[in-house]
Design a protein around this nucleic acid. Structure first.
Lengths: 244, 244
DNA sequence: ATCATTTACTTCTGTATAGAAGTGGAGATT
DNA sequence: AATCTCCACTTCTATACAGAAGTAAATGAT
Protein backbone atom coordinates (compact mmCIF):
# COMPACT_ATOMS: atom_id res chain seq x y z
CA UNK A 1 0.00 0.00 0.00
CA UNK A 2 2.61 2.46 1.10
CA UNK A 3 5.71 2.89 -0.96
CA UNK A 4 8.03 2.90 2.03
CA UNK A 5 11.16 3.37 0.00
CA UNK A 6 12.39 6.46 1.81
CA UNK A 7 13.51 6.34 5.43
CA UNK A 8 10.89 9.00 5.93
CA UNK A 9 12.05 11.23 8.66
CA UNK A 10 9.76 14.28 8.97
CA UNK A 11 6.83 11.87 8.90
CA UNK A 12 5.18 11.36 12.29
CA UNK A 13 6.84 8.64 14.31
CA UNK A 14 3.78 6.45 14.38
CA UNK A 15 3.64 6.42 10.59
CA UNK A 16 7.31 5.55 10.38
CA UNK A 17 6.64 2.74 12.81
CA UNK A 18 3.69 1.61 10.76
CA UNK A 19 5.83 1.41 7.66
CA UNK A 20 8.51 -0.43 9.59
CA UNK A 21 6.00 -2.94 10.88
CA UNK A 22 4.44 -3.36 7.46
CA UNK A 23 7.89 -4.15 6.12
CA UNK A 24 8.40 -6.80 8.79
CA UNK A 25 5.15 -8.41 7.76
CA UNK A 26 5.98 -8.27 4.10
CA UNK A 27 9.38 -9.83 4.59
CA UNK A 28 7.92 -12.57 6.70
CA UNK A 29 9.96 -11.53 9.72
CA UNK A 30 6.64 -11.54 11.54
CA UNK A 31 5.02 -14.82 10.75
CA UNK A 32 1.31 -15.40 10.90
CA UNK A 33 1.37 -18.25 13.39
CA UNK A 34 2.92 -16.74 16.49
CA UNK A 35 2.15 -13.30 17.85
CA UNK A 36 4.21 -10.27 16.99
CA UNK A 37 6.21 -8.71 19.85
CA UNK A 38 4.04 -7.10 22.50
CA UNK A 39 3.38 -3.40 22.58
CA UNK A 40 5.70 -2.97 25.53
CA UNK A 41 8.57 -4.79 23.84
CA UNK A 42 8.14 -2.81 20.65
CA UNK A 43 7.93 0.46 22.51
CA UNK A 44 11.09 -0.33 24.40
CA UNK A 45 12.90 -1.55 21.28
CA UNK A 46 12.06 1.58 19.32
CA UNK A 47 12.46 3.90 22.29
CA UNK A 48 8.97 5.35 22.00
CA UNK A 49 5.89 5.38 24.19
CA UNK A 50 3.47 2.48 24.10
CA UNK A 51 0.71 4.73 22.81
CA UNK A 52 2.73 5.48 19.73
CA UNK A 53 3.22 1.81 18.97
CA UNK A 54 -0.48 1.32 19.56
CA UNK A 55 -1.38 3.96 17.06
CA UNK A 56 0.88 2.42 14.44
CA UNK A 57 -0.73 -0.95 15.09
CA UNK A 58 -4.20 0.49 14.76
CA UNK A 59 -3.42 1.66 11.27
CA UNK A 60 -2.28 -1.79 10.25
CA UNK A 61 -5.30 -3.37 11.86
CA UNK A 62 -7.54 -1.01 9.91
CA UNK A 63 -5.78 -2.03 6.73
CA UNK A 64 -6.33 -5.65 7.56
CA UNK A 65 -2.67 -6.58 7.97
CA UNK A 66 -2.83 -7.24 11.69
CA UNK A 67 -5.37 -8.69 14.05
CA UNK A 68 -5.43 -8.09 17.79
CA UNK A 69 -6.74 -10.47 20.40
CA UNK A 70 -7.02 -9.20 23.89
CA UNK A 71 -5.05 -11.22 26.39
CA UNK A 72 -3.26 -13.19 23.68
CA UNK A 73 -1.41 -10.83 21.46
CA UNK A 74 -1.33 -9.28 18.00
CA UNK A 75 -1.13 -11.50 14.95
CA UNK A 76 -0.39 -11.16 11.27
CA UNK A 77 -3.56 -11.64 9.28
CA UNK A 78 -3.06 -13.57 6.10
CA UNK A 79 -5.75 -12.63 3.60
CA UNK A 80 -7.62 -15.44 1.90
CA UNK A 81 -8.92 -14.55 -1.53
CA UNK A 82 -9.25 -18.19 -2.41
CA UNK A 83 -13.00 -18.24 -2.09
CA UNK A 84 -13.53 -14.52 -2.59
CA UNK A 85 -14.61 -14.91 -6.18
CA UNK A 86 -17.56 -16.96 -5.20
CA UNK A 87 -19.11 -14.07 -3.40
CA UNK A 88 -20.24 -13.11 -6.85
CA UNK A 89 -21.98 -16.30 -7.78
CA UNK A 90 -24.92 -17.99 -6.19
CA UNK A 91 -23.79 -21.52 -5.70
CA UNK A 92 -25.29 -22.43 -2.39
CA UNK A 93 -26.35 -26.04 -2.26
CA UNK A 94 -30.06 -26.69 -2.10
CA UNK A 95 -29.86 -26.74 1.69
CA UNK A 96 -27.59 -23.74 1.98
CA UNK A 97 -24.43 -25.70 2.65
CA UNK A 98 -21.09 -24.22 1.73
CA UNK A 99 -19.75 -25.72 -1.46
CA UNK A 100 -16.03 -26.09 -2.01
CA UNK A 101 -15.37 -25.66 -5.69
CA UNK A 102 -12.54 -27.65 -7.20
CA UNK A 103 -10.12 -26.40 -9.81
CA UNK A 104 -8.60 -27.95 -12.90
CA UNK A 105 -5.97 -26.47 -15.16
CA UNK A 106 -7.17 -26.92 -18.72
CA UNK A 107 -4.19 -25.41 -20.45
CA UNK A 108 -0.81 -23.89 -19.72
CA UNK A 109 1.27 -21.87 -22.14
CA UNK A 110 4.19 -19.52 -22.00
CA UNK A 111 3.69 -16.50 -24.22
CA UNK A 112 5.18 -13.01 -24.53
CA UNK A 113 3.10 -10.33 -22.86
CA UNK A 114 0.82 -8.32 -25.12
CA UNK A 115 0.19 -4.63 -24.52
CA UNK A 116 -2.76 -5.07 -22.15
CA UNK A 117 -1.24 -7.79 -20.00
CA UNK A 118 2.06 -5.98 -19.86
CA UNK A 119 0.46 -2.86 -18.51
CA UNK A 120 -1.65 -4.75 -16.02
CA UNK A 121 1.38 -6.58 -14.69
CA UNK A 122 3.72 -3.59 -14.98
CA UNK A 123 6.23 -5.42 -17.16
CA UNK A 124 7.65 -4.65 -20.58
CA UNK A 125 5.65 -5.93 -23.54
CA UNK A 126 7.12 -9.21 -24.71
CA UNK A 127 8.09 -10.37 -21.22
CA UNK A 128 7.41 -14.10 -20.97
CA UNK A 129 4.21 -14.89 -19.07
CA UNK A 130 2.77 -18.13 -17.83
CA UNK A 131 -0.83 -18.23 -19.02
CA UNK A 132 -3.23 -20.64 -17.39
CA UNK A 133 -6.74 -21.54 -18.46
CA UNK A 134 -8.52 -22.95 -15.48
CA UNK A 135 -11.98 -24.28 -14.67
CA UNK A 136 -13.67 -24.11 -11.28
CA UNK A 137 -16.20 -26.85 -10.80
CA UNK A 138 -18.92 -27.77 -8.36
CA UNK A 139 -20.21 -31.34 -8.51
CA UNK A 140 -18.06 -31.82 -11.58
CA UNK A 141 -19.87 -29.12 -13.52
CA UNK A 142 -17.88 -26.04 -14.55
CA UNK A 143 -19.17 -22.91 -12.84
CA UNK A 144 -16.38 -20.55 -13.77
CA UNK A 145 -13.41 -20.46 -16.08
CA UNK A 146 -10.40 -18.23 -15.70
CA UNK A 147 -7.56 -16.83 -17.74
CA UNK A 148 -4.58 -16.28 -15.48
CA UNK A 149 -1.34 -14.53 -16.36
CA UNK A 150 1.77 -14.38 -14.19
CA UNK A 151 5.31 -13.38 -14.93
CA UNK A 152 7.32 -16.44 -15.90
CA UNK A 153 10.52 -15.31 -14.21
CA UNK A 154 8.88 -14.73 -10.84
CA UNK A 155 6.87 -17.94 -10.98
CA UNK A 156 9.39 -20.20 -12.72
CA UNK A 157 8.49 -23.37 -10.77
CA UNK A 158 4.94 -23.18 -12.06
CA UNK A 159 6.15 -23.52 -15.63
CA UNK A 160 7.34 -27.03 -14.83
CA UNK A 161 5.03 -28.31 -12.11
CA UNK A 162 2.57 -30.88 -13.50
CA UNK A 163 -0.77 -29.14 -13.91
CA UNK A 164 -2.62 -31.82 -11.99
CA UNK A 165 -0.61 -30.91 -8.92
CA UNK A 166 -1.70 -27.28 -8.76
CA UNK A 167 -4.46 -27.97 -6.26
CA UNK A 168 -7.63 -25.95 -5.80
CA UNK A 169 -6.11 -22.72 -4.54
CA UNK A 170 -3.42 -20.81 -6.34
CA UNK A 171 -2.39 -18.17 -3.83
CA UNK A 172 -1.10 -20.62 -1.24
CA UNK A 173 0.78 -22.26 -4.09
CA UNK A 174 2.30 -18.95 -5.11
CA UNK A 175 3.40 -18.46 -1.52
CA UNK A 176 4.82 -21.91 -0.88
CA UNK A 177 6.41 -22.70 -4.22
CA UNK A 178 7.42 -19.25 -5.43
CA UNK A 179 7.59 -17.18 -2.26
CA UNK A 180 5.18 -14.65 -3.72
CA UNK A 181 2.50 -13.42 -1.35
CA UNK A 182 -0.74 -11.79 -2.47
CA UNK A 183 -1.95 -9.20 -0.02
CA UNK A 184 -4.36 -7.08 -2.04
CA UNK A 185 -6.37 -7.14 -5.22
CA UNK A 186 -8.72 -5.05 -7.30
CA UNK A 187 -11.59 -6.48 -9.24
CA UNK A 188 -13.60 -5.00 -12.06
CA UNK A 189 -16.95 -6.44 -13.01
CA UNK A 190 -18.45 -6.17 -16.43
CA UNK A 191 -20.75 -8.11 -18.72
CA UNK A 192 -20.10 -9.68 -22.04
CA UNK A 193 -21.22 -12.39 -24.38
CA UNK A 194 -19.46 -15.76 -24.24
CA UNK A 195 -16.76 -16.38 -26.83
CA UNK A 196 -16.77 -19.87 -28.37
CA UNK A 197 -13.71 -20.87 -26.37
CA UNK A 198 -15.18 -19.85 -23.02
CA UNK A 199 -18.64 -21.12 -23.90
CA UNK A 200 -17.26 -24.54 -24.69
CA UNK A 201 -15.38 -24.75 -21.41
CA UNK A 202 -18.49 -23.70 -19.51
CA UNK A 203 -20.67 -26.09 -21.51
CA UNK A 204 -22.84 -23.23 -22.73
CA UNK A 205 -23.72 -21.95 -26.16
CA UNK A 206 -21.62 -19.13 -27.54
CA UNK A 207 -23.18 -15.70 -27.04
CA UNK A 208 -24.64 -16.50 -23.62
CA UNK A 209 -24.45 -13.53 -21.26
CA UNK A 210 -21.46 -13.74 -18.96
CA UNK A 211 -20.21 -11.87 -15.96
CA UNK A 212 -16.55 -11.09 -16.39
CA UNK A 213 -14.48 -10.34 -13.31
CA UNK A 214 -11.06 -8.97 -13.99
CA UNK A 215 -8.69 -9.12 -11.08
CA UNK A 216 -5.21 -7.77 -10.55
CA UNK A 217 -3.51 -9.17 -7.46
CA UNK A 218 -0.69 -7.29 -5.78
CA UNK A 219 2.18 -8.33 -3.59
CA UNK A 220 3.28 -6.65 -0.39
CA UNK A 221 5.55 -4.26 -2.26
CA UNK A 222 2.62 -3.03 -4.31
CA UNK A 223 3.74 -4.67 -7.52
CA UNK A 224 1.12 -6.57 -9.50
CA UNK A 225 1.68 -10.32 -9.36
CA UNK A 226 -1.21 -11.79 -11.26
CA UNK A 227 -3.85 -10.81 -13.75
CA UNK A 228 -6.92 -12.95 -13.84
CA UNK A 229 -10.09 -12.84 -15.90
CA UNK A 230 -12.93 -14.97 -14.60
CA UNK A 231 -16.01 -15.84 -16.63
CA UNK A 232 -19.27 -17.11 -15.20
CA UNK A 233 -22.86 -17.26 -16.35
CA UNK A 234 -24.59 -13.94 -15.77
CA UNK A 235 -27.76 -15.49 -14.44
CA UNK A 236 -25.90 -16.93 -11.48
CA UNK A 237 -24.27 -13.63 -10.71
CA UNK A 238 -25.29 -11.58 -7.70
CA UNK A 239 -23.27 -9.15 -5.70
CA UNK A 240 -24.13 -6.90 -2.80
CA UNK A 241 -22.35 -3.80 -1.61
CA UNK A 242 -22.91 -1.38 1.20
CA UNK A 243 -22.97 2.36 0.58
CA UNK A 244 -22.41 5.15 3.01
CA UNK B 1 -25.71 0.68 11.87
CA UNK B 2 -25.80 0.56 15.62
CA UNK B 3 -29.09 -0.08 17.35
CA UNK B 4 -28.43 2.41 20.13
CA UNK B 5 -31.78 1.91 21.77
CA UNK B 6 -30.41 1.02 25.18
CA UNK B 7 -28.64 3.61 27.31
CA UNK B 8 -25.80 1.10 27.31
CA UNK B 9 -23.99 1.49 30.51
CA UNK B 10 -21.34 -1.26 30.88
CA UNK B 11 -20.22 -0.35 27.39
CA UNK B 12 -16.95 1.57 27.32
CA UNK B 13 -17.46 5.30 27.64
CA UNK B 14 -16.06 6.06 24.24
CA UNK B 15 -18.60 3.78 22.62
CA UNK B 16 -21.43 5.37 24.53
CA UNK B 17 -20.14 8.72 23.36
CA UNK B 18 -19.95 7.47 19.83
CA UNK B 19 -23.58 6.39 19.93
CA UNK B 20 -24.55 9.71 21.46
CA UNK B 21 -22.75 11.62 18.73
CA UNK B 22 -24.22 9.41 16.03
CA UNK B 23 -27.67 10.21 17.40
CA UNK B 24 -26.92 13.93 17.24
CA UNK B 25 -25.96 13.56 13.63
CA UNK B 26 -29.01 11.52 12.79
CA UNK B 27 -31.37 13.96 14.41
CA UNK B 28 -29.78 16.83 12.61
CA UNK B 29 -28.70 18.49 15.85
CA UNK B 30 -25.28 18.61 14.30
CA UNK B 31 -25.72 20.09 10.87
CA UNK B 32 -23.34 19.53 8.02
CA UNK B 33 -22.48 23.14 7.34
CA UNK B 34 -20.89 24.34 10.55
CA UNK B 35 -18.41 22.34 12.61
CA UNK B 36 -19.48 20.19 15.52
CA UNK B 37 -18.35 21.33 18.99
CA UNK B 38 -14.61 21.09 19.52
CA UNK B 39 -13.03 18.18 21.33
CA UNK B 40 -12.40 20.32 24.36
CA UNK B 41 -15.98 21.50 24.59
CA UNK B 42 -17.35 18.01 24.21
CA UNK B 43 -14.95 16.62 26.77
CA UNK B 44 -15.98 19.29 29.23
CA UNK B 45 -19.68 18.85 28.50
CA UNK B 46 -19.57 15.09 29.01
CA UNK B 47 -17.08 15.27 31.86
CA UNK B 48 -14.57 12.99 30.21
CA UNK B 49 -11.01 13.36 28.99
CA UNK B 50 -10.32 14.74 25.55
CA UNK B 51 -8.72 11.51 24.48
CA UNK B 52 -11.97 9.68 25.07
CA UNK B 53 -13.89 12.11 22.89
CA UNK B 54 -11.19 11.73 20.30
CA UNK B 55 -11.55 7.98 20.25
CA UNK B 56 -15.31 8.25 19.82
CA UNK B 57 -14.79 10.67 16.95
CA UNK B 58 -12.29 8.36 15.29
CA UNK B 59 -14.89 5.64 15.13
CA UNK B 60 -17.38 7.91 13.44
CA UNK B 61 -14.75 9.17 11.04
CA UNK B 62 -13.92 5.58 10.14
CA UNK B 63 -17.60 4.95 9.46
CA UNK B 64 -17.75 7.98 7.24
CA UNK B 65 -20.13 10.01 9.39
CA UNK B 66 -17.63 12.68 10.39
CA UNK B 67 -14.76 14.40 8.70
CA UNK B 68 -11.94 16.17 10.52
CA UNK B 69 -9.94 19.08 9.24
CA UNK B 70 -6.94 20.15 11.20
CA UNK B 71 -7.11 23.71 12.34
CA UNK B 72 -10.74 24.12 11.32
CA UNK B 73 -12.83 21.56 13.12
CA UNK B 74 -14.83 18.39 12.71
CA UNK B 75 -17.74 18.28 10.30
CA UNK B 76 -20.69 16.07 9.57
CA UNK B 77 -20.24 14.32 6.29
CA UNK B 78 -23.48 14.12 4.40
CA UNK B 79 -23.41 11.17 2.06
CA UNK B 80 -24.31 11.87 -1.53
CA UNK B 81 -25.78 8.87 -3.26
CA UNK B 82 -27.22 11.04 -5.95
CA UNK B 83 -24.51 10.24 -8.41
CA UNK B 84 -23.46 7.01 -6.79
CA UNK B 85 -25.37 4.89 -9.24
CA UNK B 86 -23.32 6.21 -12.06
CA UNK B 87 -20.22 4.64 -10.67
CA UNK B 88 -21.58 1.54 -12.32
CA UNK B 89 -21.99 2.91 -15.80
CA UNK B 90 -19.44 4.30 -18.13
CA UNK B 91 -20.87 7.56 -19.24
CA UNK B 92 -17.86 9.78 -19.39
CA UNK B 93 -18.09 12.28 -22.17
CA UNK B 94 -15.69 11.77 -25.04
CA UNK B 95 -13.26 14.14 -23.38
CA UNK B 96 -13.71 12.71 -19.91
CA UNK B 97 -15.91 15.51 -18.63
CA UNK B 98 -18.33 14.82 -15.82
CA UNK B 99 -21.86 14.43 -17.11
CA UNK B 100 -24.81 15.45 -14.99
CA UNK B 101 -27.65 13.13 -15.83
CA UNK B 102 -31.17 14.52 -15.70
CA UNK B 103 -34.21 12.73 -14.37
CA UNK B 104 -37.81 12.49 -15.52
CA UNK B 105 -40.68 10.79 -13.78
CA UNK B 106 -42.48 8.69 -16.36
CA UNK B 107 -45.21 7.37 -14.14
CA UNK B 108 -46.51 7.60 -10.59
CA UNK B 109 -48.95 5.23 -8.97
CA UNK B 110 -50.08 4.36 -5.50
CA UNK B 111 -50.41 0.64 -5.00
CA UNK B 112 -50.58 -1.77 -2.07
CA UNK B 113 -47.27 -3.41 -1.24
CA UNK B 114 -46.72 -6.90 -2.57
CA UNK B 115 -44.83 -9.50 -0.59
CA UNK B 116 -41.38 -8.61 -1.89
CA UNK B 117 -41.68 -4.86 -1.56
CA UNK B 118 -43.25 -5.22 1.86
CA UNK B 119 -40.35 -7.23 3.16
CA UNK B 120 -37.77 -4.92 1.61
CA UNK B 121 -39.41 -1.89 3.20
CA UNK B 122 -40.27 -3.65 6.46
CA UNK B 123 -43.97 -2.86 6.21
CA UNK B 124 -47.04 -5.05 6.21
CA UNK B 125 -48.14 -6.40 2.83
CA UNK B 126 -50.87 -4.20 1.44
CA UNK B 127 -49.44 -1.00 2.89
CA UNK B 128 -49.91 1.79 0.33
CA UNK B 129 -46.73 2.58 -1.55
CA UNK B 130 -45.85 5.36 -3.94
CA UNK B 131 -44.33 3.73 -7.00
CA UNK B 132 -42.31 5.84 -9.39
CA UNK B 133 -41.01 4.91 -12.79
CA UNK B 134 -38.18 7.21 -13.61
CA UNK B 135 -35.71 7.73 -16.45
CA UNK B 136 -32.18 9.11 -16.10
CA UNK B 137 -30.97 10.75 -19.25
CA UNK B 138 -27.76 12.13 -20.67
CA UNK B 139 -28.05 14.36 -23.71
CA UNK B 140 -31.73 13.54 -23.78
CA UNK B 141 -31.08 9.83 -24.26
CA UNK B 142 -32.22 7.46 -21.50
CA UNK B 143 -29.28 5.73 -19.86
CA UNK B 144 -31.05 4.20 -16.92
CA UNK B 145 -34.60 3.60 -15.79
CA UNK B 146 -35.71 2.98 -12.24
CA UNK B 147 -38.59 1.53 -10.30
CA UNK B 148 -38.84 3.30 -6.99
CA UNK B 149 -41.07 2.36 -4.08
CA UNK B 150 -41.59 4.41 -0.91
CA UNK B 151 -44.14 4.22 1.85
CA UNK B 152 -47.04 6.54 1.03
CA UNK B 153 -47.66 7.59 4.61
CA UNK B 154 -44.08 8.68 5.21
CA UNK B 155 -43.77 10.45 1.89
CA UNK B 156 -47.30 11.82 1.58
CA UNK B 157 -46.28 15.14 -0.07
CA UNK B 158 -44.78 13.23 -2.97
CA UNK B 159 -48.16 11.71 -3.83
CA UNK B 160 -49.40 15.18 -4.74
CA UNK B 161 -46.36 17.09 -5.95
CA UNK B 162 -46.46 17.50 -9.75
CA UNK B 163 -44.03 15.01 -11.21
CA UNK B 164 -42.25 17.63 -13.26
CA UNK B 165 -41.19 19.34 -10.05
CA UNK B 166 -39.32 16.40 -8.61
CA UNK B 167 -35.98 17.59 -9.88
CA UNK B 168 -32.97 15.46 -10.71
CA UNK B 169 -32.12 14.18 -7.25
CA UNK B 170 -34.60 12.44 -5.00
CA UNK B 171 -32.76 12.21 -1.72
CA UNK B 172 -32.53 15.96 -1.17
CA UNK B 173 -36.23 16.05 -2.01
CA UNK B 174 -36.98 13.37 0.58
CA UNK B 175 -35.07 15.42 3.11
CA UNK B 176 -36.56 18.82 2.34
CA UNK B 177 -40.16 17.89 1.60
CA UNK B 178 -40.67 14.88 3.82
CA UNK B 179 -37.96 15.22 6.47
CA UNK B 180 -36.65 11.78 5.67
CA UNK B 181 -32.87 11.47 5.52
CA UNK B 182 -31.05 8.67 3.75
CA UNK B 183 -27.80 7.80 5.46
CA UNK B 184 -26.99 4.34 4.21
CA UNK B 185 -27.88 1.94 1.44
CA UNK B 186 -27.17 -1.53 0.19
CA UNK B 187 -27.04 -2.42 -3.45
CA UNK B 188 -27.23 -5.77 -5.15
CA UNK B 189 -26.07 -6.17 -8.71
CA UNK B 190 -27.36 -8.82 -11.03
CA UNK B 191 -27.97 -9.38 -14.71
CA UNK B 192 -31.15 -9.95 -16.57
CA UNK B 193 -32.82 -9.59 -19.91
CA UNK B 194 -34.88 -6.47 -20.62
CA UNK B 195 -38.61 -6.76 -20.21
CA UNK B 196 -40.71 -5.03 -22.90
CA UNK B 197 -41.66 -2.25 -20.55
CA UNK B 198 -38.07 -1.45 -19.57
CA UNK B 199 -36.75 -2.00 -23.07
CA UNK B 200 -39.19 0.51 -24.45
CA UNK B 201 -38.25 3.13 -21.91
CA UNK B 202 -34.57 2.59 -22.64
CA UNK B 203 -35.20 2.60 -26.38
CA UNK B 204 -33.76 -0.89 -26.73
CA UNK B 205 -35.17 -4.14 -28.03
CA UNK B 206 -36.68 -6.49 -25.47
CA UNK B 207 -34.33 -9.22 -24.31
CA UNK B 208 -31.22 -7.02 -24.38
CA UNK B 209 -28.83 -7.81 -21.52
CA UNK B 210 -29.31 -5.43 -18.62
CA UNK B 211 -27.52 -4.74 -15.40
CA UNK B 212 -30.03 -4.54 -12.57
CA UNK B 213 -29.06 -2.71 -9.43
CA UNK B 214 -31.39 -3.20 -6.54
CA UNK B 215 -31.00 -0.69 -3.77
CA UNK B 216 -32.53 -0.41 -0.34
CA UNK B 217 -31.90 2.95 1.30
CA UNK B 218 -32.06 3.32 5.07
CA UNK B 219 -32.75 6.22 7.37
CA UNK B 220 -30.77 7.17 10.46
CA UNK B 221 -32.88 4.89 12.65
CA UNK B 222 -31.99 1.92 10.48
CA UNK B 223 -35.44 1.58 8.95
CA UNK B 224 -35.63 1.10 5.19
CA UNK B 225 -36.99 4.16 3.43
CA UNK B 226 -36.82 3.34 -0.23
CA UNK B 227 -36.53 0.39 -2.51
CA UNK B 228 -35.18 1.08 -5.93
CA UNK B 229 -34.47 -1.11 -8.92
CA UNK B 230 -32.30 0.46 -11.61
CA UNK B 231 -31.92 -0.95 -15.09
CA UNK B 232 -29.14 -0.06 -17.48
CA UNK B 233 -27.58 -1.64 -20.55
CA UNK B 234 -25.07 -4.30 -19.54
CA UNK B 235 -22.51 -3.25 -22.08
CA UNK B 236 -22.11 0.11 -20.39
CA UNK B 237 -21.69 -1.46 -17.01
CA UNK B 238 -18.32 -1.53 -15.24
CA UNK B 239 -17.58 -1.62 -11.57
CA UNK B 240 -14.36 -1.85 -9.60
CA UNK B 241 -13.81 -2.99 -6.04
CA UNK B 242 -10.81 -3.34 -3.84
CA UNK B 243 -10.12 -6.52 -1.92
CA UNK B 244 -7.98 -7.04 1.12
C1' DA C 1 -4.30 50.60 1.67
C1' DT C 2 -1.10 46.71 2.01
C1' DC C 3 1.46 43.49 4.29
C1' DA C 4 3.44 41.13 8.36
C1' DT C 5 2.68 39.66 13.07
C1' DT C 6 0.25 38.27 16.76
C1' DT C 7 -3.45 35.77 18.81
C1' DA C 8 -6.84 32.48 19.53
C1' DC C 9 -8.81 28.85 18.12
C1' DT C 10 -8.84 24.02 15.99
C1' DT C 11 -6.98 19.10 15.39
C1' DC C 12 -2.64 16.33 15.63
C1' DT C 13 1.36 14.03 17.82
C1' DG C 14 3.71 12.07 21.62
C1' DT C 15 4.48 10.85 26.42
C1' DA C 16 3.33 8.90 30.99
C1' DT C 17 0.49 6.45 34.13
C1' DA C 18 -3.18 3.63 36.22
C1' DG C 19 -6.16 0.11 36.33
C1' DA C 20 -9.65 -3.05 33.82
C1' DA C 21 -10.28 -7.23 31.27
C1' DG C 22 -9.08 -11.47 28.75
C1' DT C 23 -5.76 -15.64 28.43
C1' DG C 24 -3.25 -19.35 29.85
C1' DG C 25 -0.02 -21.73 32.71
C1' DA C 26 1.90 -23.07 37.42
C1' DG C 27 0.90 -24.67 41.63
C1' DA C 28 -2.07 -25.64 45.65
C1' DT C 29 -6.24 -27.77 47.23
C1' DT C 30 -9.65 -31.10 47.23
C1' DA D 1 -6.80 -37.03 38.99
C1' DA D 2 -9.61 -33.14 38.83
C1' DT D 3 -10.52 -28.57 40.19
C1' DC D 4 -9.44 -24.14 41.92
C1' DT D 5 -6.70 -20.13 42.75
C1' DC D 6 -3.23 -17.20 41.70
C1' DC D 7 0.11 -15.02 38.74
C1' DA D 8 2.24 -13.26 34.70
C1' DC D 9 1.34 -11.93 30.52
C1' DT D 10 -1.36 -9.72 26.84
C1' DT D 11 -4.47 -5.91 24.92
C1' DC D 12 -7.98 -2.40 26.27
C1' DT D 13 -9.82 1.80 28.50
C1' DA D 14 -9.28 6.24 30.48
C1' DT D 15 -6.88 10.20 32.15
C1' DA D 16 -3.64 14.10 32.05
C1' DC D 17 -0.40 17.01 30.01
C1' DA D 18 2.80 19.29 26.62
C1' DG D 19 3.80 21.02 22.48
C1' DA D 20 3.41 20.82 17.13
C1' DA D 21 0.85 22.24 13.17
C1' DG D 22 -2.96 24.17 10.46
C1' DT D 23 -6.56 28.04 10.06
C1' DA D 24 -8.47 32.44 10.29
C1' DA D 25 -9.23 36.75 12.04
C1' DA D 26 -7.66 40.83 14.61
C1' DT D 27 -3.92 43.85 15.15
C1' DG D 28 -0.07 46.53 14.04
C1' DA D 29 3.59 48.55 11.05
C1' DT D 30 4.84 50.27 6.76
Amino acid sequence: MRAAVSPDTRLPIYLQLKDAFAAKIQQGVWSHRDPVPSENKLAEAHKVAVGTVRKAMEGLVAEGLLERRQGKGTFVRRPDFGSALFRFFRLAGADGEVLRPTARILKRRIVPADQVSARALAVAPGTPLICLFRARCVDGRPILVEDIAIEASRFAPLAELPTDQFGDLLYPLYDEVCGELVVRATETIRFDAASPRVAKALELTAGTALAVIERVAYGPDGRPLERRRSYGPADRFSYTIELR
